[in-house]
Simulated scan of single mutants.
Amino acid sequence: MLTLSLIGIGCGDPAQLTRAAVDAINAADLILIPRKGTAKSDLADLRRTICADVLANGKTAIAEFDLPVRDVGEADYRKGVDDWHDAVAAAWSETIAGHLEGEGKVALLIWGDPSLYDSSLRIARRLNPLPTLEVVPGITSIQALCAAHTLPLNDIGEPFLVTTGRRLREQGWPQGLDTVVVMLDGGTAFQSLDPVGLHIWWGAYLGMPDQFLLSGALAEVGPRIVMARKEARERHGWIMDSYILKRER
C-alpha cells in the first residue's frame, strides 16, 4: 500500500512548522520536491532547508522533479487547469515509481495549507492506483497576512469572501460583503475597482526574509503596491502575494 501525505509547511518561515508536520516528514520513506524553474528556485531551496533541519532518521529519501508548466494560453481555463493537473499527477507517479516499489510512505511539502487554494488533493486523486491520503494542516497566507498586519480578518458577526484576482477582475466587488481576501492574483486586480472607501492590507513573500508589507487607503497605496510588485518581480524573478480589502461601513 502507498500512503501520500500532503504536509502544510506554512508560508516561508520554517518556524511555522507544526509538531505534526515535523512528525509526518520524519515518517516518510520518500519526500518529493518540485522544481518550478530557476525563477522560483527559492521555493525548492526552502523545502530542502526544511528537510535538512527536520529529518532525523537518516532513512528518508528525497527526490526532485520538474513541475510541468500550465498552458496559460488555453482559451478554456478549466480545461487548461485539468490538463495541467493530469501532467502533474503523471510527474508524481513517475517520480514515485522510480524510488518505491508500489508501497511506502510518500510526502509532499505543501506551501501554506493543502486545503486552501492548493490543488494537491485534486491532483493526488488522479493517481492510479489511488494511494491512502493524509493531510497535515499548515498556516495559510491569510493567517500570515493578518498576523503581519495585526489585523482581525472579520468584523464582528460579519462574513468575508476568499477569492482570486481573476474573479475579482471579472465580477467586481461582491454584493453584500465588506471584506474580501484575494489570492492567486497574477496582476493587480484591485486596480479594476473604484477605490473610494476601500482599504487594502497587502503582503508579499510572507514569512520569508524578503517579506514586504503595505497598507492604507486603496487610492493612496494602490499605486505604491503596483510599483513594489514590479520591482520585486524584477529582483526575484517571481512574486507570491495576497491582500485583504475592506470597505468602510
Results as ranks from 00 to 15, higher is better:
Ala91Lys: 08
Ala91Cys: 03
Ser93Pro: 10
Ser93Arg: 15
Ser93Gln: 15
Glu94Thr: 15
Glu94Val: 15
Glu94Lys: 14
Thr95Pro: 03
Thr95Met: 09
Thr95Cys: 14
Ile96Gly: 03
Ala97Gln: 12
Gly98Thr: 10
His99Val: 13
His99Arg: 14
His99Trp: 10
Leu100Val: 04
Leu100Phe: 01
Leu100His: 01
Glu101Val: 05
Glu101Asp: 13
Gly102Phe: 05
Gly102Asn: 06
Gly102Pro: 11
Glu103Asn: 09
Glu103Lys: 09
Glu103Ala: 08
Gly104Gln: 12
Gly104His: 12
Gly104Ser: 11
Lys105Gln: 11
Lys105Ile: 14
Lys105Pro: 02
Lys105Asp: 13
Lys105Thr: 15
Val106Thr: 07
Val106Gln: 05
Ala107Pro: 01
Leu108Val: 11
Leu108Cys: 14
Leu108His: 04
Leu108Gly: 02
Leu109Glu: 01
Leu109Cys: 04
Leu109Asn: 00
Leu109Ile: 01
Leu109Met: 06
Ile110Ala: 06
Ile110Met: 07
Ile110Asn: 03
Trp111His: 11
Trp111Gln: 11
Gly112Asn: 11
Gly112Glu: 11
Gly112Ser: 14
Gly112Pro: 08
Asp113Ile: 05
Asp113Leu: 06
Asp113Arg: 05
Asp113Ser: 04
Asp113Gln: 09
Pro114Trp: 03
Pro114Gln: 07
Ser115Lys: 09
Ser115Asn: 14
Leu116Ile: 15
Leu116Lys: 05
Leu116Phe: 13
Leu116Met: 12
Tyr117Glu: 07
Asp118Gly: 01
Ser119Cys: 03
Ser119Gly: 07
Ser120Cys: 10
Leu121Met: 14
Arg122Thr: 02
Arg122Ser: 10
Arg122Cys: 01
Arg122Leu: 02
Ile123Gly: 00
Ile123Leu: 05
Ala124Lys: 00
Ala124Pro: 00
Ala124Gly: 02
Ala124Asp: 03
Ala124Glu: 02
Arg125His: 14
Arg125Ser: 01
Arg125Tyr: 03
Leu127Ser: 06
Leu127Pro: 03
Asn128Val: 14
Asn128Gln: 15
Pro129Lys: 04
Leu130Pro: 03
Leu130Ser: 08
Pro131His: 02
Pro131Gly: 05
Thr132Val: 14
Leu133Glu: 09
Leu133Met: 13
Glu134Pro: 02
Glu134Thr: 14
Glu134Gln: 15
Val135Ser: 02
Val135Leu: 13
Val135Phe: 09
Pro137Ser: 00
Pro137Phe: 00
Gly138Asp: 08
Gly138Gln: 04
Gly138Phe: 12
Gly138Tyr: 12
Ile139Leu: 13
Ile139Pro: 02
Thr140Asn: 07
Thr140Gly: 09
Ser141Arg: 04
Ser141Glu: 04
Ser141Met: 12
Ser141Gly: 08
Ser141Tyr: 04
Ile142Asn: 07
Ile142Ser: 09
Ile142Lys: 04
Ile142Arg: 05
Gln143Trp: 06
Ala144Met: 08
Ala144His: 01
Leu145Pro: 02
